[in-house]
């Protein structure tokens, strides 16, 4: 979108004119779409792209279910993909038959949330671990105990991101269960542990990069990319992978069921599976992308980052995060309300 075109597009917005020929409307997490890559796509295919933000899978799902908002592409997290599919908001666009699909790293082809990739294409993936300021706490950082049984040094300086699925998963694995367990004995222990640990936490909030860098907080349950950004500002911030189990997530691009610009959307899915384009995404969002060969185009500080490259010995502890069955989710909700009240 050129600046000179801004006012024209505003006029078009008010008029609500029908979608122009070369148009693509992306609905994505905020601050997650590389403007550089979009510019390249616009030039290459002569398509005008709009980007609209959301801040949670649930909001995106609610909006798409209601329909009519004109989005062509959406980027749900892996755990939500089966829900998006069963609620009928994604189009079966068969990206596995697209030209660039061969670039997708084998590990990300046959994923549980979209077997064989009939709906979605990898966008970015990462882990949820624990960022620790090692100048304040010198011990082993690959442990969920830092948050649930915190050492004296960290008490009152801990942040936990308010993501129910990830935090519950971390706690359940810490107490010896598996994600989405419905085992009441485990869940009671989890609830008691969370409630017991809460007074040691300073906050349950997003946006912790600056606070980690400024030592307002000394540890945080966190995304790996955010932890890396904090480290670039303050080298004491290290990222730990809890040995008892940590979650691996992947956000995936898909075409919406009521897309108006299906052909352009297909072009876009194919486009982001090209290594150099996927690398642009990663350089902007600071996460890995699941496209083989993209490493060659990535910034040097990403290729070697310990937050992006999981150490060999800790790879086994990671589990791919999934959505839990409704009856289990109800119990988790009750625990979560109790925790955040």
């Amino acid at each position: 979108m050129k600046r000179t075109a801004l006012l024209t597009s505003l006029a078009a917005l008010i008029a609500g004119t029908a979608q122009a020929e070369g148009q693509l409307n992306i609905y994505n997490w905020g601050n997650y779409t590389s403007p550089e890559m979009i510019e390249k796509f616009e030039k290459e295919f002569d398509i005008a792209v709009t980007i609209t933000d959301y801040d949670s899978n649930d909001t995106a799902l609610a909006k798409l279910k209601a329909g009519g908002s004109g989005f062509d592409i959406v980027v749900p997290s892996g755990a939500y993909v089966p829900i998006f599919i069963s609620e009928g908001v994604l189009m079966k666009s068969n990206p596995n038959e697209m030209e660039n699909f061969s670039n997708v790293t084998p590990r990300w082809v046959d994923v549980e949330f979209d077997p064989g990739r009939e709906y979605t294409v990898p966008w970015q993936w990462g882990t949820v671990g624990i960022s620790v300021n090692t100048s304040i706490y010198g011990g082993d950082i690959d442990s969920a105990a830092l948050v649930f049984d915190p050492p004296e040094e960290l008490k009152g300086k801990i942040n936990v991101i308010p993501e129910m699925i990830d935090v519950m998963g971390l706690a359940i694995h810490y107490m010896g269960g598996e994600q989405c367990t419905g085992d009441k004995d485990v869940l009671v222990k989890v609830r008691d542990k969370l409630v017991e640990a809460k007074p040691s936490w300073l906050s349950m909030a997003y946006g912790n990069i600056d606070k980690l860098a400024n030592v307002d907080i000394a540890a945080s349950v966190n995304w790996n990319g955010a932890s890396m950004r904090a480290r670039l500002q303050n080298e004491d911030v290290k990222f730990g992978y809890p040995q008892t189990g940590y979650s691996i997530w992947m956000d995936n691009a898909a075409i919406t069921a009521d897309a108006q610009n299906v052909e352009n959307a297909r072009l876009f899915l194919n486009f982001i599976m090209l290594p150099e384009n996927a690398a642009m995404l990663s350089n902007f969002a600071r996460y890995a992308n699941g496209i083989t060969g993209s490493e060659a185009f990535m910034d040097a500080d990403m290729a070697s980052a310990p937050e992006i490259n999981i150490p060999e010995n800790l790879q086994g502890a990671g589990y791919i995060s999934k959505s839990c069955p409704p009856e289990v989710q109800k119990i988790y909700s009750q625990i979560w309300t109790e925790l955040t009240k």
Binding site: L13, W29, G30, D55, K63, Y206, G207, I209
Partner: peptide, 21 residues
């Protein structure tokens, strides 16, 4: 909740950024 494609206002744009930075 009401916005359609391409209708981010400053606050919704910021809300989208809130999770990251």
């Amino acid at each position: 909740f009401v916005k359609s494609a391409g209708q981010d206002t400053l606050p919704t744009y910021m809300l989208g950024q809130l999770r990251r930075n």
